[in-house]
Design a protein around this nucleic acid. Structure first.
Lengths: 342, 342
DNA sequence: TACTATAATGTAATCGTTCACATATAGAAC
DNA sequence: GTTCTATATGTGAACGATTACATTATAGTA
């Protein structure tokens, strides 16, 4: 609650001297003045006023964390999002930045908020299409896009090599000897009539399909099962899948979907993994909690959140060092839901 | 990027007139001036500068969300926390407040941050003991404590009726005919030597114990199984539990623990629910995702997050209306892991 | 002694907004 | 034609910091 001025009066010096001490410009102040002022700062419980600093310098130690919330739901119920936000928050704290958690539904409103709060940088999670265009056009401070598609050459993006992930999934399942493999996913950008198109899933699909092709296998139309990415829809998909007699494996583009699919299969009397193998994507905790434990494609959630902050801070503090966009690679986590065909 | 002054110059009026329009003091400005200014605001993409407002009024539209992070981990990996934070964020957005996500490990640092950013109010999640004392002493703006113990008469707390929850658990399991019921939990405040004491769990334990007492049953020492609240520790506890031949039911003070316990029991060849009933606490998504689906005590996560914001906003904007602390009641969600004993 | 370099401290404007008050203009009332 | 009131608008200080520059004091050099 106390101000520079109050400290200054108490110390019998000018505000400038106190400011110099607070900001560590020690060569400008004599040692005993520094001591005296530091004691007073401690005693009087002085904390610099962020607003005043921002106003005067138009620099802030604030990073906005913006999550795509078109659906206007509790986005943090999605463990993927909360992992990222948690990692961002920790790393920001580490780097002495504060985090503004943005939850507006519309991008223009997000833009206004960022302006209003004078954020030093922003992280965008899961934005696509026109929203990305707006972001690119309107942003005037450093920002990085996490899991955003389509990537533009002019923005820094951090993501997962989704195509590789899909391919790895395909390669793995075919390497186990599977020939008739189904694909369970949310709506990808090839689906004309769905609202919530998801480019990430599209790339996973492409990679997966290419892997099959390379093995001389074709992905049949009726083996492509699309729904929303939820547990309940997964259960539905699983039941449906049980009717497709020939299928011996299924690749699900999200762990939560895979968990549902397994349950749906179980309800229909199909044994996982002995009758059908299930492979997920994400490696979220859920994959460890279900039984049998889910084999899945791991992606670097924590690393993505962390480096988003590192990138932002770098862009703010050392704009001369230009770091390129990055796509983290994936790896296979073999657990209990996948088996060779014989 | 444009300022009041720029709008004022463009409109040929003083900043005050523009300010009046921006702040909806319409009776003070003529209608055509309002129109002209509004057009310019739109065209010039004017957004009020939050820092300047805060500095000038020392009022902010900022709520700090502070999560106890003594352990210095990714607190949002815990779905309970992220549910709350997500609900808080949504509701704050609804009420036109911004959310500062606080992730400092030490309470004094949190206090400094809140001062520095001039927050209008704060929500504290999961703080206990000395930390709460510090919070109570240092806070100068409205705040509410979520799931914090011990409650002080002078602070507004929002929580779950944990005692009732424990009691309901005990009553339910005994009503099913169970007599030898185990209790699996994290360290409660009766455990002298653990670092991470959790008063919430203590109350659940008390309620549970009292329910058994009322049925003339005693909770035996060796039926009290304490570990950390994690899936893996749950698995351990489950294996251990399988060795206690007589036990026919177990109450776990958290869903994640229950999920592990079920897996541990399964690994040891014990069938849930036919050989042993398992009851959880929280009703997090995980309880729906495991198989068999977990019976559990439901608590109002979303409501808690929402009303925390409502309380704060009320305290900020209508301090004359004093609302009392609140404890939300719990209810039983019967799924598949509990069965009558015969 | 005068002159200059360096260290220590101070001054005043500024950032964008709000606040409390002041002013201007018009029409109504006397 | 004064006085009054209401409506519309303007003025200048303040919020708490920073910035660029100015001042003073002290010591060192020619």
């Amino acid at each position: 609650m106390s101000t520079l001025k109050e400290i200054a009066t108490a110390a019998g010096v000018s505000v400038m001297t106190v400011s110099n001490v607070v900001n560590g410009r020690h060569h400008k102040v004599s040692v005993d003045t520094i001591d005296r002022i530091n004691k007073l700062i401690e005693e009087m419980n002085y904390v610099p006023n962020a607003s005043a600093r921002i106003l005067s310098t138009s620099r802030s130690k604030l990073i906005a964390m913006c999550i795509n919330n078109k659906s206007n739901t509790n986005v943090l119920e999605d463990p993927y999002n909360s992992f990222i936000v948690g990692a961002v928050s920790r790393q920001a704290n580490e780097k002495e930045y504060a985090v503004l958690l943005e939850n507006e539904t519309e991008v223009p409103k997000i833009m206004s908020q960022l302006k209003s709060w004078n954020v030093a940088g922003a992280i965008f999670l899961g934005f696509t299409g026109n929203d990305l265009l707006t972001i690119e056009k309107e942003m005037t401070v450093p920002y990085v896009c996490l899991d955003c598609y389509p990537e533009s050459k002019n923005m820094v993006t951090i993501g997962t090599h989704d195509y590789n992930g899909g391919k790895l999934a395909g390669q793995y399942l075919t390497s186990l000897g599977h020939k008739r493999i189904a694909f369970a996913s949310g709506p990808t950008i090839t689906d004309k009539n769905s609202k919530q198109l998801n480019p990430l899933l599209h790339y996973r699909f492409q990679g997966f399909q290419d892997a099959l092709k390379e093995e001389g296998l074709a992905l049949q139309e009726e083996y492509i099962l699309k729904s929303e990415i939820t547990y309940d829809d997964g259960v539905q998909t699983g039941s449906h899948l049980a009717l497709l007699k020939d299928v011996t494996a299924v690749f699900c583009t999200a762990d939560i979907l895979a968990a549902g699919v397994i349950e749906g299969l179980r309800l229909s009397g199909k044994k996982v993994p002995h009758e059908i193998s299930v492979l997920g994507f994400d490696n979220l905790p859920i994959s460890n909690y279900i039984s049998p434990k889910l084999s899945t494609i791991n992606q670097q959630h924590t690393l993505k959140g962390q480096s988003a902050v590192d990138y932002i801070v770098n862009m703010i503090e050392s704009p001369e060092i230009v770091k390129p966009s990055i796509q983290y690679d994936v790896n296979l986590v073999e657990r209990q839901t996948t088996l060779p065909i014989y």
